[in-house]
């Protein structure tokens, strides 16, 4: 159960802290060399904290990864916000609002974590708005029906969970702590999506067909969320050595397929892969990989909704400028600011 893994990652943080307390009865102080160099901390599976000494490349790669993760959360609000006004019931509207609100919150936790590495929020937002940093390619696909809300919650959030649970043990403290928080909230997202599809799959033939169509369109893009295959993944070795990345792309992709195939059977919906089959020798499902050429095209800007997502984000930033200016003016006038 993935939530158990999150709990144990959190418990590991508390246990590590207790290792520092000396328990000497002989009067001799706790001996041994201090573990405090970057390499020693990484080797001992202890956390790097803000302002610790760290290789510049470690700092830069983390800024990029955490910031792009944050951008993904915020851009990811768009495909689902698309259906808030058309949710089929008040309860489902409230739930979808809560989910989208969570995504905003996840973006904020992650921007906060990135900022501890010595960058400003303004700088990171600028990198997104000018296209110099990216966001997860999955959000460049359109949400065509209400059933897409179910498919996204079940498959896209499901894939995100498989990706994010290992990050709860990443070597950089603020990122690991943000991921623990995010993972706890993410599991509601997946169950919410599953429940939407469960209801549709047991509804009218048209609802059933809508659910199946959404699954057909979101399955392969969800597999692509894990990135290119291992032999093409350029930064993996160094990220693994620094304990930022704990498992390879293909390992996580396989884990996602193995956990999801049984859920599809329970739903009574088919995953659109004629080669999906349990392999007893491997103890895993055999499956058709996603189209990596399509992934490359979508990442580089040629997906169905890339332009729309960026235009929406830029407009939101521009349209909100008067609010930021008014709030700053009010704070300055009333002297209630931060100084």
């Amino acid at each position: 159960m993935l939530l158990d893994e999150v709990e144990s990652a959190e418990a590991a943080l508390r246990a590590a802290r207790r290792q520092q307390v000396p328990a000497e009865t002989s009067g001799v102080p706790a001996g041994g060399p201090e573990i405090d160099s970057f390499e020693q901390l990484i080797a001992a599976d202890l956390k790097i904290e803000p302002r610790d000494e760290m290789p510049e490349a470690y700092r830069k790669t983390l800024i990029r990864q955490i910031a792009q993760h944050a951008h993904s959360e915020v851009i990811g609000m768009q495909p689902e916000a698309n259906w808030i006004t058309r949710a089929p019931s008040l309860k489902r509207k409230a739930i979808l609002l809560a989910k989208v609100q969570d995504e905003a919150g996840h973006g904020l936790y992650l921007y906060g974590a990135a900022e501890t590495l010595g960058v400003t929020r303004e700088h990171l937002v600028g990198l997104l708005l000018t296209g110099r940093q990216k966001y997860s390619s999955i959000f460049n696909y359109p949400t065509l029906t209400w059933a897409d809300m179910g498919a996204i919650g079940w498959l896209v959030d499901g894939a995100a969970i498989v990706n994010q649970v290992p990050l709860c043990r990443c070597s950089y403290g603020p990122y690991a702590r943000a991921m623990i928080r995010i993972c706890k909230e993410e599991s509601f997202h997946q169950r919410q999506g599953f429940e939407i599809l469960w209801t549709l799959a047991r509804g009218t033939p048209a609802q059933r067909a809508m659910a199946q169509d959404a699954v057909d369109r979101w399955w392969y893009p969800s597999l692509a969320m894990f990135g290119p295959p291992d032999q093409e993944s350029t930064h993996t070795e160094r990220s693994m050595a620094w304990k930022i990345k704990r498992f390879s792309n293909d390992t996580l992709r396989q884990r996602f397929v193995d956990t999801t195939a049984g859920q599809a059977e329970a739903l009574g919906l088919k995953l659109p892969d004629p080669h999906l089959r349990w392999n007893p020798q491997r103890g895993s499902y055999d499956f058709t990989p996603p189209d990596y050429d399509e992934l490359r095209r979508v990442i580089s800007g040629d997906g169905p909704c890339n332009r729309q997502r960026m235009a929406h984000r830029r407009a939101a930033h521009a349209d909100g400028a008067w609010v930021r200016e008014a709030a700053a003016a009010y704070a300055a006038k009333h002297g209630t600011g931060a100084e």
């Binding site: 010595g118 400003t120 700088h123 600028g126 930021r324 600011g337 931060a338």
Partner: peptide, 20 residues
């Protein structure tokens, strides 16, 4: 303190950030 030098992105809130 060590705040890393980063090139400012022009046009962002006129260079004045919202307090942290």
């Amino acid at each position: 303190g060590s705040s890393a030098g980063q090139e400012p992105v022009t046009g962002e809130d006129g260079g004045v950030g919202v307090p942290l």
